[in-house]
C-alpha cells in the first residue's frame, strides 16, 4: 500500500475521537519514522486545521521529528537521579561506541531512578548500567 494510503488509514482510525491530533501524530511518527511536511498538510486537511496549527504541534513535542533517521536509537537517561549514579562518566564511551551507526538520544527520566544509569532501546529498558554494559547495549542496538 502506498504511504498516502497508510497515512489516510491512520487518520481514519482516529478521526472519530475527541482530540484526535496527538494520537494520529504518534502513529504517523511510529509508522514513517517522522512527520514530514506532506503528512502535516494531509492531516491538517483531514482535521480541518491549518497547516501552521499542525506544524506548531509537531514542532512542540520532542518525540516528533521532521525527517526520519534510519539509525537505531538508544535513549540514555541523563536526569538528576542518573547523574547522581554517574551517568555522565559513561557518555563519552557510549558516544564512541555509537559512532555514526547508532543515535544516542538524551532523555530525562525513564522512571528507573533507584537503579540508574538507565537506558531504553525500543520498548526494552535497561538499568544498573556500567560502562561495559552500556557499550554492549549500544553495539547490539
Amino acid at each position: 500500500m502506498s504511504d498516502t494510503g497508510r497515512l489516510d488509514d491512520i487518520i481514519a482510525a482516529h478521526a472519530g475521537r475527541d482530540g484526535p491530533l496527538l494520537p494520529i501524530l504518534i502513529d504517523v511518527q511510529h509508522a514513517f519514522g517522522c512527520v514530514d511536511a506532506g503528512s502535516e498538510a494531509r492531516i491538517a486537511h483531514a482535521l480541518n486545521l491549518s497547516r501552521a496549527e499542525v506544524h506548531g504541534v509537531v514542532s512542540f513535542y520532542h518525540d516528533f521529528t521532521a525527517q526520519s533517521d534510519p539509525r537505531p536509537v538508544v535513549e540514555l537517561c541523563r536526569a538528576e537521579a542518573c547523574q547522581s549514579r554517574g551517568v555522565e562518566a559513561l557518555v563519552e564511551a557510549a558516544e564512541a561506541a555509537a559512532g555514526s551507526r547508532v543515535k544516542i538520544k538524551t532523555v530525562y527520566c525513564l522512571g528507573l531512578c533507584s537503579a540508574g544509569p538507565a537506558a531504553r532501546v525500543g520498548d526494552n529498558v535497561h538499568a544498573r548500567l556500567d560502562q561495559a554494559a552500556l557499550v554492549d547495549l549500544v553495539q547490539s542496538a
Binding site: A79, Y108, C113
Partner: peptide, 8 residues
Amino acid sequence: DEGDSGTF
C-alpha cells in the same frame, strides 16, 4: 505524566 527525575 510523571516526568520528575527521582519519581516512579
